[in-house]
């Protein structure tokens, strides 16, 4: 049974990402939205943490939040989502965990 983890906090001010990476299982999904998309910033410590175990999970990010922050995602394997795609993911995964 796979889980979709939804993160919204900046990796520089919260431990959400760290805690999530500790419990993420093979086949799970991680959605970054709001300030959590800062974890995609190339060269950041959070980006390195994310990429270190990326074979385990699928990585998604809310497109409007990535664009609003002008984050270059060309170096990262991440699927950008609009809201309909976000909803569809919540349906596809058996469980959804909103980290707030």
């Amino acid at each position: 049974m796979t889980t979709l983890h939804i993160l919204n906090a900046s990796p520089s001010t919260a431990t959400q990402l760290k805690s999530c990476l500790r419990v993420v299982s093979i086949g799970d999904g991680i959605v970054l939205c709001g300030e959590a998309v800062q974890a995609l910033r190339p060269g950041s410590a959070a980006a390195e943490q994310l990429l270190a175990c990326q074979q385990t999970y699928h990585l998604y990010a809310l497109q409007e939040d990535v664009q609003a922050r002008a984050i270059d995602t060309t170096m990262v394997s991440v699927t950008l989502l609009d809201y309909p795609a976000f909803v569809a993911l919540c349906v596809d995964y058996a469980r959804v965990n909103s980290w707030t």
Partner: peptide, 9 residues
């Protein structure tokens, strides 16, 4: 079947 929570920023 799903609870989606929106909190924080």
């Amino acid at each position: 079947e799903r609870l989606i929570s929106f909190g924080g920023q």
